[in-house]
Amino acid sequence: MVGRFWDWLSGKTPLVDAFFAAPVLFLALPSMLGQGVGMGAAKYGLLTFLLLGPLVLRRTYPRTVFAVVSIVSCVQCVLNIVPVPGNIAILMGLYTVTADFAFRWGLAAALVGELGAVMATWRYVSGAQDAKFTFVMFTAVVAGTWILGLHMRTRRAYLRSVEERAARLERERDVEVQVAMAAERARIARELHDVVAHNVSVIVVQADGASFAIETDVQRARKALEAISQTGRQALTEMRRLLGVLREDGSVEAYAPQPGVTQLDDLVEQVRSSGLPVTFEVDGTPAAMSEGRQLTVFRIVQEALTNTLKHGGMRVVADVRLRYGQDAVEVRVVDDGRGAAAADDGRGHGLVGMRERAAVYGGSVRAAPRPGGGFEVVARIPMREDA
């Protein structure tokens, strides 16, 4: 409610300016209703209106309002009309011009204000000692108002630069995340290509060998083997074509076997040797999974333990648990490190990579600080396509 009120009020600039001018009007109200100081109440009210009325548009037309108020005050001085509370409008106009416009406009407004101080001292003060004191006081007020306007102008410029920098950093972060996601997809494409291409290549070789090895005249078996060979070749060609679109470049990389769940013991032992105590448990009966899914499980555990090493802090302990369900495997990596208090520069993309990998097989990853301290990564990977 309060936020909506301020949003509505920020669009009503004349109303806000009138609110800030109201105290000066109330200060002059007793003299307007009674007898003006050295003048009639009507003249006093007219002068006050000419000085305070333009302030309603102070932030809408700052330079015009300051010029009008300055001219009215100049005529007032020339006609030897005593100062009134409404003359404070000069200072309000000076502040607005200095805060809203370039330095040269603020300096020009300050010089006009200083000229008014000279004229007011010359017209209304008699005696050298009193004149000197009054002039110094007027000059100090004008200078103080000008400096306040400069300070506000500098502060606004700084806040604008901070907002622009924050917006730019947010855009750059989004771009970095997108680039990281694209790079991760390319890496996943290469790894999946290694796994799938190897299996399909074995099918092709076996089918070709069976096709040439058959010495009988079992035509149906031969045609079936030939169909396997043809289908395998087509699948391999299509897989290479689709995954080639995701590659960062057109280079052909050597195939290499990828790690799976059986290599998790080696990974845990490697992390232990680096100084991080890790416990590793497996619940349930390990089920057959495709090599791509095993690779996803391995990479998620690897990334989670890497984050624990980087952000967990001293004396942190990690626990890795694999739980095989009926149709999915759950990976849970928990540590008792810093958790939400860990420093984050916003440039890491490991969690993005985890989610991208799990999403390939319809899985999900939840990574968040634990309420009691530490960090927790929970991933669920379906073991079959229908799951």
Rank of each mutant, 00 (worst) to 15 (best):
R171G: 03
R156Q: 10
L111R: 01
Q178S: 11
K132S: 12
Y124N: 07
L225H: 05
E176H: 12
Q178T: 08
D174F: 13
V162E: 12
F135L: 14
M152N: 12
D217E: 12
V202P: 00
G116H: 15
R153P: 04
V205Q: 15
F212G: 00
V118E: 03
V204S: 03
M181I: 11
A227R: 14
I214Q: 10
A143V: 13
A131L: 00
W122M: 09
L115E: 03
E163T: 14
L150V: 08
A120V: 01
R168F: 13
S161R: 15
R187W: 04
S126P: 00
Y124T: 06
A186I: 02
V141P: 00
G116R: 00
A210S: 10
I147C: 12
D194W: 03
Q178A: 14
G144V: 02
E184D: 14
R185N: 06
L148N: 06
R185S: 06
A224I: 08
A166M: 13
T216P: 01
W122S: 09
G149T: 04
A210T: 00
D174L: 14
F135E: 01
E191Y: 03
L225D: 03
L111C: 08
V175Y: 07
V175T: 04
G116L: 15
K223F: 08
V202G: 03
S161H: 10
V136M: 15
T139C: 07
A183P: 02
E226P: 02
T154G: 11
F133Q: 14
R165H: 11
L115D: 03
Y124C: 04
R156W: 05
A210N: 09
G113L: 03
V196Y: 05
E184N: 13
Q129E: 10
A207C: 04
Y158I: 04
A213E: 10
E191G: 06
R173F: 04
Y158C: 00
I203C: 06
T216N: 06
E226R: 14
S161W: 07
R222K: 11
E164T: 08
E163P: 02
L111H: 01
I214M: 08
R123L: 04
V136T: 13
A117G: 02
V118N: 04
Q178H: 13
K223E: 14
V179Y: 09
S161E: 12
A183Y: 05
A210D: 05
A157P: 02
R123P: 02
R165K: 10
A166E: 15
V162H: 05
A128R: 07
L192F: 10
E215I: 06
V162G: 02
A224N: 10
I188N: 07
L111Q: 01
K132H: 09
R156I: 13
R190P: 00
D217L: 11
A213D: 12
D217Y: 07
R222G: 01
L225S: 05
V125N: 01
A221H: 07
G113P: 02
R123I: 12
E191K: 05
K132G: 07
G113N: 00
R156M: 10
A227D: 10
M119F: 14
M152Q: 12
R165I: 00
S126Y: 06
E226N: 11
G144Q: 02
T134N: 12
D217P: 01
R160H: 04
